[in-house]
Design a protein around this nucleic acid. Sequence first.
RNA 1: GGGGAGUUAGUUCAGUUGGUUAGAACGCCGGCCUGUCACGCCGGAGGCCACGGGUUCAAGUCCCGUACUCCUCGCCA
Length: 606
Amino acid sequence: MAVPFITEVKRTHTCGQLTKANIGEEVVLFGWVQNRRDHGGAVFIDLRDREGLTQVVFEPDIAKEAHELAGQLRLEYCIGIKGKVASRGTQVNPKLKTGEIEIKATELTIFNRSEPTPFLVEDNIDTAEDKRLAYRFLDLRRKPLQQSLMTRSKMNAITRSYMVDNRFLELETPFMGKYTPGGARNFLVPSRLNPGKFYALAESPQLYKQLFMVAGFDRYFQIVKCFRDEDLRLDRQPEFTQIDVEMSFVTQDDIFTIIEGLIKKLWGEVLGIDVPTPFMRMDFYESMAKYGNDKPDLRFALEHIVLTDLIKQHGAGGGVPMMWEAVEQGGIVKAMVVPADKPMSRAESDKLEEFAKQNGAKGLARAKVGEGGEWTQSPLSKTITPALRQAINQACNAKTGDLLLFQFGRESLVHTVMANLRVHVAKKLGLIPEYGSGGVWKFLWVVNPPLFEYDEETKTWAAAHHAFTRPHDEDVQYLLTDPGRVKCHRYDVVLNGFEIGGGSIRLHDPKVQAEVFKALGISDEDARAKFGFLLDALKFGAPPHGGIALGMDRLAMLLTGAESLRDVIPFPKTKTGTDLMTGAPGDVDDKQLRDVHVRPVPLPQK
RNA sequence: GGGGAGUUAGUUCAGUUGGUUAGAACGCCGGCCUGUCACGCCGGAGGCCACGGGUUCAAGUCCCGUACUCCUCGCCA
């Protein structure tokens, strides 16, 4: 009597598949109860699987038994049904792909009942994120997450086929490697067989992929997990996925072409959008000046105006002592214009100051430009000389009603505050197009950054990227005399304010390499101890090579319009790196610790 | 490590200047209903107000601390 679902009665279709072309067919669907509408006489069920929803109707005069059982159905029961596809006549549901049909059920089996779920499995969930993470397996039943993960699967497939078509080999590298200093903090794995020693989880396959080039593999790629023990953000997880690429015998442009082709294909096949190539290129220093960071969102203007030189010219006589002092102490002065056609109330601009302070600023000087170029609503207006005011107005191309925002002081802080302010204001003014409604995709390469950064704390030069980045040939002469001047073949690919990838042409000339180490204050012995195997490798006919890594999670986030990386990672971690579902990281027992020769240090009492 | 926001029913939220028995919606339970698709109608259960101190005649409400979550600066070659 009972229909043997699964063993003999096999699924014939998914829940997103049937249309009026199938009317009259006998079908079998498996899935979950998304919704029920029990009219007593007729029971309607929306059956869900990853492909969509299909309405199933149980009526007593069609199948008495199934109808009675259907009365027991509740949300999220896992069931199988058999029945006939029928037209809904005039009662179509335009919201569903399958909205023109329904299944008149003749058989029903309940595979598994469900307790009431801690939150409703629905598309537009507003449940707190920690509860969703604690029951991630339920959260993952929701359509947006299902679609994100299906998109990721597609991205992986597209990437593999594109890379393989372009002669790339997918080669694997170890997760557990040797700790190398510098860069991100590593996760450490104690070695049981080697007491007191530790592996480091790879923060990227950087060194290994260079060795592939030395070995002659020529073109390598890998979709690979990377691990970094740094603080999390909405676009940063402790473990994340990169599309890692390395190529021999190439220039920077060759790498750009490959990556532009990949992105074009991803956007084309996933979104049906044609991304124009080649991407725009912007000098690192231009990006810092105009946007305050090296990952500008070019979907809107609101460019910064650097006023440092202007303030310098007017000197102490300019009438704005605070700006003058900032410049004298080696700082910079920047301005930004909130245009008059997007007026901002006094209260709103006061909130901007709050925002600036949250980002580390001491305050936010503002001025509203009046008819004759005079400044109002500004403490600056009392002391500033007309000449400087006019010069600033001119530099900012300020018009009546514009609101000028100023930041001055330490260069890095001014950049950070103004960069965040720029994005914040753009959001407030509605300058950023919504995803989906004609979403705008502004790709660019940020190129020619400095090879070194000056570390204020240690008063030394440090590698801005890593110690194996190739400097511009014409700058090699300054490596030791003027390190800050040396630019390098490093590049970031940026989309809508997110760094989606970065890489460099590597140093393969041992002579220049030695000079770079010298500039960094790394002795031969240090270099040998830290990077010995790579230095050795470079001595044996290493080919010129370079590469790049794209952040797969960020790409997926942008492609799907997700607001957080957590929405494109199946099992993400919280801000503090915990997994609320499994409880990781968790305690281990003493024996396990003894096995790996580790003893926890008690936390200091507060 | 610094700054900010939050925590009230299973979920999302409301809760007045501190003042009787802490409310609503959805979900859940029981009943009715043959054309719903946010189904509808009737009835019901469900709360250590995150935790620990304090102020007060009286604390969900005020103060201090802790935990957790989120945002952000630092950090992330």
